[in-house]
Design a protein around this nucleic acid. Structure first.
Lengths: 227, 227
DNA sequence: TAAACTCTAAATGTTGACATTTTAACGAAA
DNA sequence: TTTCGTTAAAATGTCAACATTTAGAGTTTA
């Protein structure tokens, strides 16, 4: 049984091998299939995935840019370790960026985009009623937040959050039983956020989002006593 | 005369060639020696710099992670174009991140670090008195802001700002005669920021920094009428 | 026993050649 | 004249071999 067993199928359909490797490794890191702190040995992985080291190295450089990997010259690359401290820092950063994003979104989102937000929230509400339902599914939560961030129309914030921060947050939640967010609060807060956007009230939107993220941070702070 | 003439001396002393190339190209992009929107032809550059394409490609991947370069599969890499819109988005992002950073810094900076801030400001004041003096030199301004950001002790914010945003802002200022910031206001605002940190007042620090960056954004908005 | 040295194996860094895709110039047809 | 198709050159993507550095096992020495 090989170390990177289930990775073996790099058979997606991206345009380049290097891009596929990036996405394959990204997922493997987020799920923990490649463990935190693990060394990414180029030789082993290349053999495992049946590719040459060139594209693999490029993928590693890209993951470095996403903060999923830390690289030390002449020593190689390791998967980032999500210490309690780092996770809390992630949420502080997210608070700053996403509260600004929602303020901009309140000014710039189209009504069609706001409709989409409504549909996502309604789906969340429905899923909660049907499936036992104390939780908003993580995937739906991500979709909601991504829609808000894209609504800001700010490419810089969008990239910082979606391309970098969210990957680390997904990684944390996936590997720490935070797969679902607490429902009652989250859904209510999502509604408040959409309300503020609908009212075209940037300040209210910002405050509401800030509180939403601070609550998430507090839940984590309470539960991550160790590390 | 070659296209990348003055780049020819990749003779620094980083540990790896790829790291040197990253830093060389970074500087060339910031200064505009390689123009905005220019295509980075691997073959030409490799010959020009007398290196093989491998390390060059790795450097390009890293610059991609810094948002200095945009890469399209099968088409190659181009230097980012700093449109008016993008620059204003940069400052909105900076406002969000740096105001959070200074709030954290107000709680976490050591008194030695605060002393350093004082020394930097005093130097700014002195330089202004001596050299005709309507401007804070850009280099000193960067040092001041970097010290504040590092003072936050938040590695995520630190990386987002220093590793990514600041490069783009330096690039913009270097290529658009914003090499120096307006003095009177900036120096006073720097003093206010240090005061707030000294008082261990995160909220005051945050508001003060926010205003400082909004002012900079407004100056840019007024002067960049075109594009 | 502990520290320092040597040497070997394994890993990362670098190179040049090969493969595939894109681009654009050229010519033919509507 | 414009459009479409062909083709050759140039560019990006990929690979495998070579070079250099690091890490660790084993040995020697204080």
């Amino acid at each position: 049984m090989s170390e990177f067993a289930t990775l073996s199928s790099v058979t997606n359909s991206s345009s380049t091998l290097s891009a596929e490797l990036t996405s394959t490794l990204r997922d493997a890191i987020i799920t923990g299939e490649i463990a935190q702190g693990a060394k990414l040995s180029e030789a082993k992985m290349a053999k495992e995935l049946d590719v040459s080291r060139g594209p693999l190295r490029e993928a590693i450089r890209r993951l470095e840019g996403m903060n999923l990997i830390q690289h030390i010259p002449q020593q190689g690359a390791r998967v980032v370790v999500l210490s309690r401290e780092l996770v809390l820092q992630l949420y502080d950063t997210r608070e700053a960026l996403e509260s600004k994003a929602v303020a901009l979104a309140a000014e710039k989102m189209s009504s069609q985009e706001i409709d989409q937000l409504h549909r996502e929230i309604d789906a969340q509400s429905k899923q909660m009623r049907e499936n036992s339902g104390a939780f908003v599914p993580a995937e739906s939560d991500y979709r909601f937040h991504e829609m808000v961030v894209r609504g800001s129309k700010n490419k810089v914030i969008e990239r910082a959050l979606i391309h970098e921060l969210y990957n680390l947050i997904k990684m944390f939640r996936y590997q720490n039983d935070f797969a679902n967010t607490s429902s009652t609060n989250s859904l209510v807060e999502h509604r408040q956020i959409v309300y503020a956007i609908e009212q075209r009230d940037p300040i209210l939107a910002e405050v509401t989002m800030k509180r939403h993220i601070v609550h998430a941070r507090e839940r984590i702070e309470r539960r991550m006593l160790i590390k």
